[in-house]
Amino acid sequence: MQLVHAFDAYCGWSHGFSPTLREVVSRHPDLPVEVISGGLFTGSRRVPIREFGHVQDANAQIAALTSARFGEGYDRLIADGSFVMDSEAATYRKVAEDAGLDADAVVAAFESPEADDAAADDFRRCADLGVTGYPTLLAVDGGSVTALARGRATADEVDRRLAALS
């Protein structure tokens, strides 16, 4: 069995689920984890953030329920409203710089045709697994797929669902 974590880089709920995922992984170091990008903001959903009028309210709810924090830079993007969330073009330059990596090399890798193919593969994998929202945590055992969390869950809730599979 393996865990499959479907997320989107621009999904606030995915951000809020991160501590739960870390805890689940630490409790189950024997379970491999596959992380796949869902492509929440692709096609017709690739629009300026102001068109998602619920973002500020959703972020407040996410923070209240998960203790996730959203930074000042993100708040400025929402207030401005012109930023276009694009799951196929998320930039990781700042993350790479903060991690001490060669940011130019990371950006070049993400802009390569291979990266586009990998993203499309992830989007297809999510669809094949029946993922309809983010984040989703699945237990995959051969052809059997069981949802352990959709949107949010505690590590204890995930553990109970995992135990029920045994």
Rank of each mutant, 00 (worst) to 15 (best):
E51S: 12
L148V: 12
L3F: 11
L101T: 06
D75A: 15
R45A: 13
F83K: 03
A139S: 12
A155M: 13
S67C: 01
N59L: 15
A108R: 08
G81V: 13
L165E: 11
S82D: 15
R22W: 04
V84M: 14
H54I: 01
E51H: 09
R152D: 02
G43H: 03
T154S: 15
G16R: 12
D121K: 00
V47Y: 00
G143P: 04
D75C: 00
G73C: 00
V47P: 00
H5D: 07
V84I: 15
A64F: 08
F41R: 01
E72L: 08
Q56N: 08
G142E: 10
S37Y: 06
E51M: 07
R125I: 00
H5F: 12
E111L: 05
D104R: 11
T91P: 03
V24F: 05
P113V: 06
L65G: 08
V131C: 12
R22V: 04
I36E: 10
A147Q: 10
D159K: 07
F52H: 09
S87E: 03
A127P: 02
P48C: 01
G39R: 01
V106I: 13
I36T: 08
A115C: 14
H15S: 06
A139Y: 03
D116L: 13
V95G: 10
A109Y: 04
A68D: 13
A60M: 12
E23P: 01
V106N: 05
D116T: 15
V55W: 08
D156F: 09
G151C: 04
R160W: 04
E114W: 02
A149N: 05
S144V: 15
A147N: 04
A68H: 13
R22F: 00
A64I: 08
L137V: 03
A63L: 11
S44P: 00
D156K: 10
V95K: 08
E88N: 08
V140I: 14
D30N: 11
R161N: 03
A99W: 01
A64K: 12
D86M: 03
H15P: 04
K94Q: 07
